[in-house]
Design a protein around this nucleic acid. Sequence first.
DNA 1: TCAAATCTTCAAGAAATCTTCAAAATCATT
DNA 2: AATGATTTTGAAGATTTCTTGAAGATTTGA
Lengths: 219, 219
Amino acid sequence: MAHILVVDDDIAMLQLVRRVLEKDQHLVTLQSNAKAVTEMDFSKFGLILLDVMMPEIDGFDLCNQIRDRVDCPIIFLTAKTQESEIVQGLGLGADDYITKPFGTNELRARVNAHLRRDVREKRNSFSISGVIFHLNAKEAEINSKKVPLTKSEYEICEYLARHHGQTFTREQIYEAVFGFDGESDSSVISTHVKNIRGKLAEFHLSTIETIWGVGYKWV
Amino acid sequence: MAHILVVDDDIAMLQLVRRVLEKDQHLVTLQSNAKAVTEMDFSKFGLILLDVMMPEIDGFDLCNQIRDRVDCPIIFLTAKTQESEIVQGLGLGADDYITKPFGTNELRARVNAHLRRDVREKRNSFSISGVIFHLNAKEAEINSKKVPLTKSEYEICEYLARHHGQTFTREQIYEAVFGFDGESDSSVISTHVKNIRGKLAEFHLSTIETIWGVGYKWV
DNA sequence: TCAAATCTTCAAGAAATCTTCAAAATCATT
DNA sequence: AATGATTTTGAAGATTTCTTGAAGATTTGA
């Protein structure tokens, strides 16, 4: 779901955290060299877990530096239990603070809570066959590039993709996508499908299959 | 700084929390009747502190209901220390969890950390596509030169830029930028966009895209 | 209050999209 | 291979949605 950076000088701890976070399908990047961290490109991370006590560099310092450059949630991960330390950590712009030893489920829960907070602010979308459908924007995306579908084309595409595997007659598609009708709407769908196919072909995709005598299906 | 709602059946606790939070100039609203909470207008609060153990209604339930209606940070405040409870709380959409007895400074720090997270998204200037938006002055700047946008033009521009990538209908833009309306406001936006485009074009920018059949989008 | 700036309305022209249609291609069955 | 049914395709016309310019209404500032 998200790309998470974990910084800690304790290798065993890093591996533990990776194992825990990968339960939730997160992509986890580990870093035990705190100095190297300052030269990383943080933009790709959705969340950062930071140990406070590390040789060479202080976690609080690091937090400061990261916060200047990027805006994702930062969670401190540390053995310190003094309340004043917590205050210091949160005061620096960290978003949370987990004390070792921690329960692995608490770690997961806190990480996911912060990620959810981010997701909540974004649009919803779903992805299939390498195509991402952005429901609000009514746009389809392949390889981070926008597919130039018209509104009707997008609706047809999304409908078929959402019900992938199922076959629909042209009439069913027409009725589902536009309000409803009883006219000669089958040829309309045919033409739209032709155009959709043409546009998807530019991305080397042919996911709309003709079911002879019936209609179309997304595979 | 922020308007904070505190819900707890323990009056002494409510007063303690109020005293602590008012140190940071927050406006604090107390509520000891959990049932009454469900009928409140949450929109004005910047953060909500919620006790888990209350008579009549369960804090987790309440969290669910609030989360359906509003998007501000929610922090649980409770005597329970079981890890599984924490997991449950955070899983429900709460953003944090503080266990009683807590240090008053930890409370302040956590509350402020979550508020800061919100504020961070509200700087007084931000930049995108080479355009700097000065929120206070309501001025846009390109290559250190002021773009002569009128107030309405600036607001539309800033709104689209702030939500770059997202498509809005003319009506949505109108409602977001001016109060709200139900008239023929779509043509107003069309004309404003035309004028904005003209002014941005002088800086060789064309960042407002028409999404056919939907509206406009900043790219 | 008046003038200038800004906002809103409107309609004509332009652009994009949708629909129709018929010829060509494909498929299934005999 | 021939036939009839179904689908694909291209192009043209119809429709819907934008853009634009200009004019009237409103607000702002002196």
